[in-house]
Design a protein around this nucleic acid. Structure first.
Length: 475
DNA sequence: ATAGCCTTGATC
DNA sequence: GATCAAGGCTAT
């Protein structure tokens, strides 16, 4: 349609215009049709109706210079009109492209827009053939406008009142939608109440004296760029009782407790949701069934004082950027190592649904391996989950963060907290060995989280819940 | 009124 | 995501 348009030129065109390369090219390639049937198209204003597409396909179809309709060289540009000469055909000023059907500068474009629809009241003070160039263009509006028409500018392409209103309405509508989109997540962050009391039956590390954490052997420390997941070993192999352990400071202990309680609360009863294998038929389901988890993630971050330190904009950026990793982390908590699936109240969702519904067997393998090893490593120590969750929320690599330094500082505090917690939990000696391994696990989580982005590519946005659309940047 | 810059929806 | 071509905004 419009991309095939060649600029028709007026019969009044002057000799010097004909000498310009662009014009010659047009004449050479133009078969005359465009002159006989000047198009009547207003691009970009479909107004959502099926309008005149047929008419346009004939009358409005110009051919691109040097090409015949669809025979434009494939993959090369868009077959648009030639505009090799980047100078305004009215005044010779620098032009960026076509305006109202002719290559013109910004000022002639604006001039034409302002004047073309007016009744020609201004008269030329001379003979009506003033020379128009970049210096003289302001002197005689009459001749300037005349030249605009002469070189083929078309007043039909200026939107009329009604069309302008419709265009503005569309812009406002989109603005509103964008605003609402930001607002809904913002509102959620600001106001979403806890829909559940913390589940006191939940067991977590700080309330137990046992060693809940499994740590990978040093041999397990591998290159995280590979898809192999760091294996875990049994914590019982560590002789912690004879080792020196850290005593957490009051502040550290309180923070751990706060995080643990908060994370536990947002995990509680999660498996109550009646999800079964049948809940999943495609990637859309996979995404939509994660909505509750996302809401709980939001609940968790809202509990963190550090999160409140971020600007609203950075809060949203941070949330959006950690959402896949967070979902992964949460799924690890519910992963059943023996049965290779996720526990729910109504049974078990086998991990292979990932393969079945996405078609990605590699994704399934990596996910399962990671979940197994991570679960064997962390077991159900919610404190570890909570600290890791905090570390991934405050990720300074999140694209678009405004206050990167703040996020980085906060993340560092949680990394230090993880180290302290490990020193408290498994002794200084073992922590020194295994803390880096834990950081590797977090790196793996990041990588696997981003690998899962390919599931997102499969979804049909029309079938995805609004919150998920928004947080996954699909809206 | 002019003209330069910006925002935007459509298109590829 | 880049490009195009509309209109809007605003200092001059």
């Amino acid at each position: 349609m419009f991309e095939c348009i060649v600029a028709p030129f007026s019969e009044n065109i002057c000799i010097e215009d004909l000498n310009r390369p662009g014009i010659t090219e047009q004449m050479m390639s133009d078969n005359g049709d465009s002159l006989n049937s000047p198009p009547d198209i207003k691009p970009h204003l479909n107004c959502g109706q099926d309008d005149t597409s047929e008419d346009n396909s004939n009358a409005g179809e110009y051919t691109s210079p040097g090409s015949v309709k669809s025979e434009t060289s494939p993959g090369k540009g868009r077959g648009r009109r030639a505009k090799d000469d980047k100078s305004c055909r009215v005044c010779g000023d620098k032009a960026l492209g076509y305006n109202f059907n002719a290559v013109t500068c910004e000022s002639c474009k604006a001039f034409f827009r302002r004047n073309a629809l007016k009744d020609q009241t201004t008269k030329c003070l001379f003979q009506g053939n003033c020379f128009i160039d970049i210096r003289t263009r302001r002197f005689c509006p009459h001749c300037r406008l005349k030249k605009c028409f002469d070189i083929g500018m078309r007043k039909e392409m200026i939107l009329d009142d009604n069309e302008r209103k419709m265009r503005m309405a569309k812009v406002m509508h989109n603005r509103q939608k964008r605003k609402e989109s930001v607002e809904s997540l913002t509102t959620l962050i600001k106001t979403e109440p806890m829909d559940q009391e913390p589940d006191q039956s939940c067991q977590y590390a700080t309330s137990t004296s046992g060693h809940c954490i499994n740590f990978p052997s040093p041999e397990g420390m591998i290159d995280i760029t590979s898809t192999v997941v760091t294996p875990a070993i049994d914590i019982d192999a560590l002789d912690i009782d004879k080792k020196l352990c850290r005593v957490l400071s009051k502040r550290e202990a309180e923070l751990c407790e706060h995080l643990t309680n908060g994370y536990a609360a947002t995990m509680a009863n999660y498996h109550c949701e009646n999800l079964t294998s049948e809940s999943y038929t495609d990637s859309n389901d996979l995404v939509n069934t994660s909505e509750q988890a996302v809401r709980r993630l939001i609940q968790f971050v809202k509990l963190m004082e550090d999160f409140k330190e971020l600007s609203q904009e950075d809060q949203i950026t941070a949330l959006k950027s950690c959402v896949l990793q967070s979902l992964m982390l949460r799924s690890v908590y519910f992963f059943d190592v023996e049965q290779e699936g996720w526990r729910t109240l109504t049974g078990l969702i086998p991990a292979k649904v990932l393969k079945d519904i996405t078609g990605y067997s590699d994704l399934y393998e990596t996910h399962t391996n990671f979940s197994r090893e991570m679960k064997k490593t962390c077991k159900e120590d919610i404190t570890v989950f909570a600290i890791i969750q905090s570390i991934i929320v405050f990720n300074p690599e999140s694209v678009g963060l405004k206050n990167l330094q703040l996020v980085s500082d906060i993340q560092n505090r949680y990394i230090v907290l993880l180290k302290s917690y490990l020193e408290y939990k498994i002794s200084f000696e073992y922590a020194q060995i295994y803390f880096p391994v834990f950081l590797r696990k977090i790196q793996e989580l990041k990588k696997i989280g981003s690998d899962h982005a390919k599931i997102i590519l499969q979804v049909q946005t029309s079938k995805i819940e609004p919150l998920m659309l928004e947080i996954l940047n699909l809206s």
